[in-house]
Nucleic acid binder design. Structure first.
Lengths: 341, 341
DNA sequence: TGCATCAATGACAGCGCTGTCATATGGCGT
DNA sequence: ACGCCATATGACAGCGCTGTCATTGATGCA
């Protein structure tokens, strides 16, 4: 009469031994059929496959991983899922590793390096074949764990710094500089900046690259800046540009920390009747699909996000096959000339 | 001299036995400290914790899961990551289960029910504590696997149908009907529809609800429809509305399959000089943050996406604790009166 | 004082699978 | 006829951990 719950376990999951018995072969032979390894005669394979279907066998990767000293999981630590950037990366990665029967185990840190450390520890407990993180800046303990794990480590998005193992990304400093040069070439000189919360280290590098290039190429400094203490969002961008123009109405261009923020800026301009680009130029960063569908497509610096994920997956597979992929892969970026500058 | 790669394993990972030896206690005692179970004296705990740090111990969840017949993983099968809807759900879920030391193992199906079946099989191999899917429609084999697994199953987003176990969502038929009633109340009568690819069953239910309510309440049928054979996107929405207005210029309102599509529609109207809402009303679905930052905020039917994830996490935790959560949780929806109707 | 109770710790087996090595079988060249 | 190799299969141990039950003192209470 017990109404006891056994949340963790199937009532009585079939094991490989059940399959083997049903097929009249040994466990190891059944195992080989399941994994597609080793020489198996067609007749045996058919028997085992029938047995698998008959008993409803689902392999137990916990046992398999333990026995073979490692899982087919790829740990992925992402700062956020709230704009499309990291989901795009994740999709690219998923697509590239699906063929190798690898799966992603995802953790999200909200741009918190302590949360990243904890996530790495938790993911390492699954003995992943590889671990994918974002950025090159981590807590020292994180780097130690990564190095000690012996797993393949891939750091995404950024290549300016010292990778633990492998890196796939781009130079955000250069991307910021490209935005600066673009605006200077278009004759802008009173350039402002709208940014978002401090956790995003790559956005900070872009801003630094922007300021450095303005200084170097035209001896300019930012004519105004407004940074919201919050994650990036369209609403935040809209409010931030409004606030910035309030105190610095003379600006003739604004660079945004990313496209979400820039989109908000574009919406503010539409609503407030600010003429874009004649009165004010807007430049974003990322190259989201959405920003290209605007009545005036956003001028932005496009990063190949899906591509970064895909290449990371390929680099990872190469390493797992025992090859030696390049330590750093620079996927670069494009300045997309839209209608807002 | 061998340059052999051991991709899967740390050079020599410390085990619980190493910790126990270093701490001068038995393995099981070390295990209890690691897991925070059972009565442990403060002195012993301190010794073991020091040993853990000294040897750099990282627990092996593969072994732990095998020994205790179940993992602390929650398998999550999502149709897509390409608009913010499912990332939002996932964030909510992650937040709600983090406290219980559960982790999500994510698979993406691209709205393909066969891919969903394969994903379920793959996730089940990890003996997850629970499995979270989207929608109530699955292949028969999928349902069988789910039922046979004995795990807690939660189906998200939809509540119209027969849940395998637990469901958290809303009535999309009712949401579609709400959009219809909203437009009728605003005096619209020549109502069109812009939709996206066939895999999205919930979008189809919304359309059905829309059409049924138009018929029932005003004896109207759709005055035009354009459905793109592609995933939803802002660009697709923009192109689709342009195409629809080409063949049905007399429309005075358009309902979109979701906010991404509607945003594209809004952009088309801005670009083509279609006066919204005087000449044409636009209604979306989802209530994305972004759509609310438009110069004219989008009128839409908001679903509590993060909330659905959060509640799913709570329902799940309740079940794992042995409680009996409600079989179906209706989170409802809100009609958000924006400026586009 | 004696006995139940509780806190703290340990011994042992086994979770389900796979790596390693061994074995059986048949074809083939000489 | 003989060894040799490739193919097909199996026996066995053990991966690292935890559930179960046992053990040891210390404590409470009549």
């Amino acid at each position: 009469m017990s109404n006891e719950h056994r949340p963790h376990r199937a009532v009585s999951a079939a094991t490989l031994a059940d399959v083997a018995r049903a097929a009249g072969v040994s466990e190891i032979t059944a195992s080989r059929v399941v994994r597609g390894r080793g020489p198996i005669s067609a007749a045996t394979r058919a028997k085992v496959e029938a047995a698998i279907a008959a008993v409803g066998y689902v392999p137990n990767r916990l046992a398999g991983g333990l026995a073979s000293a490692g899982s087919n999981l790829v740990g992925v630590v992402l700062p956020s899922l709230s704009n499309s950037v990291f989901p795009d990366v994740l999709s690219g990665l998923n697509g590239a590793i699906a063929g190798e029967r690898l799966r992603t185990l995802v953790a999200v840190t909200d741009y918190d390096l302590d949360a990243e450390r904890d996530a790495v520890a938790a993911l390492l407990a699954w003995r992943p074949a590889a671990l994918v993180l974002v950025g090159l800046e981590h807590r020292p303990e994180t780097r130690e764990m990564l190095a000690a794990s012996g797993a393949t480590i891939i750091e995404l998005m950024d290549i300016e710094g010292d990778p633990v193992d492998l890196a796939v990304g781009l130079s955000h400093t250069a991307a910021g500089a490209a935005a600066a040069r673009r605006l200077l070439a278009r004759g802008r000189s009173r350039i402002g900046y709208v940014g978002h919360g401090a956790g995003d280290l790559r956005a900070a590098k872009r801003r630094a690259g922007l300021e450095a290039a303005l200084k170097r190429d035209a001896n300019l400094t930012l004519a105004g800046a407004h940074v919201v203490d919050a994650p990036s969002s369209v609403g935040a961008g809209r409010a931030a540009l409004a606030a910035l123009l309030e105190v610095a109405p003379e600006l003739d261009a604004v660079v945004f920390s990313n496209d979400d923020m820039a989109l908000g800026g574009a919406f503010h301009c539409m609503a407030a009747g600010v003429d874009v680009p004649d009165r004010l130029a807007l430049v974003g960063f990322n190259g989201l699909e959405l920003a290209n569908a605007l009545p005036k497509p956003l001028t932005t610096v496009r990063t190949a996000r899906g591509e970064i994920g895909r290449i990371a997956g390929e680099v990872l597979c190469a390493r797992l096959r025992g090859e030696t992929p390049p330590k750093v892969t620079d996927v670069g970026f494009d300045v997309v000339a839209g209608g807002t500058d």
